[in-house]
Design a protein around this nucleic acid. Sequence first.
DNA 1: ATGGCAGGGCACCCCTGA
Length: 255
Amino acid sequence: MKIATWNVNSLKVRLPQVLEWLATHTDITALCLQETKMDDPVFPKAEIEAAGFYVEFAGQKTYNGVAIIARAPIENVIINIPNFEDPQKRVITATVNGIRLIGAYIPNGQSLDSDKYPYKLAWLAALKEFIAEELKQHPKLALLGDYNIAPEDRDVHDIKKWIGGVLVSPAERAIFADLLALGLVDSFRMFEQAEKAFSWWDYRGFSFKKNAGLRIDHILLSSTLAPQCIACEIDVEPRKNERPSDHTPVIATLN
DNA sequence: ATGGCAGGGCACCCCTGA
């Protein structure tokens, strides 16, 4: 089976692309979406189900919003991080085919001197605690999503342009390392990859054409699940669509 | 140093994203 993550930057705009992508990737069992940007009453549940999928979601107007689309039943759903007060809808957790999936849209942080930066760090600390708890009950666990963290300098097209800002700060990278210390493995780095492999490119300045991107969308696998992973790839094709998301899917193959 | 593109809300300009 394959599991995937995709920040779609508005599901209203991107739903046709998502359904088309799933139609041509029939081996993807579960897809986690971020930035659906829609409240639950207007979520296109019927359309997705009519296309043959199960779907669970948690959204809000304008910002954030997450969902899981799957070809198998989606069970034992948890919305957001328990015991962490947060009006923003950024996490959906569920079990599909016996794998515990945590789909997350980690805060951007905006800048190191913004109020949103300490929110990001506190949010990540709460997420880490939640994952530690989930791992006790669900050893086969994957954390998929838009992390808004480029873990290493090789995940940044030009580190000089990003240093001193969010996404690459030592504190954020330290929390990423804390996730790895829970036993999680960055599935992308389990395999040999091309250099300058990114999952996001700014809409501005022909960034995609110049491959001036960041690798900030990740699939981390628990130590129990990682040995089942035989591939991880970034699919850049949807970034070439008309009206693309600025992010592109990441796919992990499990056997 | 700044803005550049895109989406959404809401009213035609502003906020946010990364």
